[in-house]
Design a binder for these strands. Structure first.
Lengths: 183, 183, 183, 183
DNA sequence: GGTTAAGCGAGACGGTACGTCACGTCTTCCT
DNA sequence: AGGAAGACGTGACGTACCGTCTCGCTTAACC
């Protein structure tokens, strides 16, 4: 079992990392600073998360958990039960909303990631999207189309639209794009 | 005017960087090594290109020049004259082909870039694509759609498809996606 | 406590620096080369010694330790017990001998030093010499005279006499000078 | 012949260097800054003075000229005519005074000099001092003693005494030292 | 409740990349 | 034609980062 202090430190680190990301430029959030801000030695951070990528992934995962649950077992249209096209639209709406609220975290993850396309999160998202596409419009190359759609979620684009406060323009644009493609 | 030796060194550096990128892992291509491989002092590299990002941008630009020329003044369908939809398809074909041949360079640029969306290349590509979309299908949010389409060209995706040799699957998928959207 | 590897590296660095100084021109002994010769990263050298001056000081200190011990607790005439004049003569003999054997190191230190007169070594030497002068000949301005005498030990002078193999001429000249002054 | 503008630039450079040395820390007086302050291209500085050492030497020489003249053809006791001991005392008084007024310049020269002991100025001073010593007290090793005495004039010591405003203590100490030695 | 060993915490340490700076050269232009 | 200007080349220095390693401590499970 994880010791009590270990759990406490894990939380402290995640929280410190989040706050630093929120308040500072990405490049300024070094592992050292995270450790210091968490009131913890650097070794602890690495012990707990392996490396920068691990920390950032953990950060993302903590923010993504709710969505995953909603998708796999929540109520429609996000969860099972609704028609694929609706689920897809709902999913991208949710993802855009999620990414909007956590741009810095997503950006940090992307930047630290060595193999983004094979990270658990991307893989699961891709599987979900591709599955929905396949059942909605079998004539499409579902696998590829899923990649292309998910490509729209890169943090730099999110950041750009967030800066001008047009995130819903992004969301609606994506939704109509999906609608057109699945027709 | 640029001095003769300066020009020679600039070429040597660009060439050395390219060769190193081709033969080594991206992380191993340090500025020092580029300098050494070019037979030039490290200071020279920084003097000429400012920083890593500058070098990588220059590298990309050198590879992109031909495409830019073809787009602005070459023969149709890439250049002016063809209907927008054809030009768009031709453009993405060309970009995929270009990116395929220079994945390492593109990846290096992305990784070193602090503000990809505002880099000259992205800006010009986006302007071109958005313009074509606007004239082909005025009902679309051209600006946004251009961003979404260009999002498909991230190096990690290119790399993935290149590894399995399916780059034409990517190209054709993109083309049909564009066709659907512009309809 | 100092970690085992740290101690090992410290020794390796000092040794490499010494050998490089012995075999190369002072200007060619860069921190990079020292690191490389020691089989150690450059960061390690700076981590351990702060900067060039720190490294050179450490080098000198390592060579000076024996003399310091002999002065503070060794047998007369260098150590306590002998009359001040003898101790002074013995001290300068020893210092000249020491400096002769380590000209390059002393020169390197002088060159890298920003505030030679306040370096621990100079301060301790000066205190020792001034103390002896004061007790031998109270009528002298001991503090000042100590500075003047120590001024004779600049590496450029040592080097000059070393080149012509006349170091004992220097030593005996100094000794007789001291004798005259203390009379 | 030197062109008029060349001479003007030479003067401007020397003057700029002096002012910079007076108002800034030695390490901050780079050749670039001297050139800029003189309103002149960097190439001009190097063209005129060869390198940093050359510039600093020129600076020192410009300050030392008057003393040299006084020594070789001025009135006693500095110039010829007075007994050697007096001339020596007068010389060191003059040098201390000179060095005091120009510590920064002297320090800059020392620091930039590769072979101080063979610089024209040191050589001439040494010859003068050694000659006087030899004729005043033939039993001494004049050559060596001259070196030892001149060793007292290092800029770091001057600086130290200048900071505490005790330059006359230094001068009188030196004078009595000389008196004792020549007796 | 005390003991102990395994996990944990802390940060010193190692190494490499990046970027700055200053010196000195060299070409190009101007007078 | 020679001097002025500064772009250019070069290497050294030092910083900052990531990730490792060692040593001391804590804690949780067991006696």
């Amino acid at each position: 079992m994880e010791r009590a202090d270990a759990a406490r430190n894990r939380r402290a680190i995640l929280r410190a990392a989040e706050e630093l990301l929120a308040s500072h430029d990405l490049a300024e959030v070094s592992m050292d600073r995270v450790a210091a801000a968490a009131g913890v030695g650097k070794g602890t951070v690495f012990h707990r998360f392996g490396n920068r990528e691990g920390l950032m992934r953990a950060l993302v995962e903590s923010r993504v958990q709710a969505l995953s649950d909603a998708v796999s077992s929540g109520p429609p249209p996000l969860g099972p039960g609704a028609p694929p096209a609706s689920r897809l639209a709902a999913f991208f709406d949710a993802v855009v909303e999620l990414a909007t609220r956590n741009v810095k975290v997503m950006a940090a993850f992307e930047q630290a990631s060595t193999d983004r396309l094979n990270s658990p999160i991307y893989v699961s998202w891709h599987a979900h999207v591709a599955g929905l596409i396949a059942s909605a419009t079998p004539s499409l190359d579902a696998d590829l189309t899923a990649h292309l759609l998910l490509g729209s979620l890169h943090s730099d684009l999110m950041l750009q639209f967030l800066k001008t406060g047009e995130t819903d323009r992004l969301a609606s644009g994506l939704r109509s794009m999906i609608a057109t493609l699945l027709r």
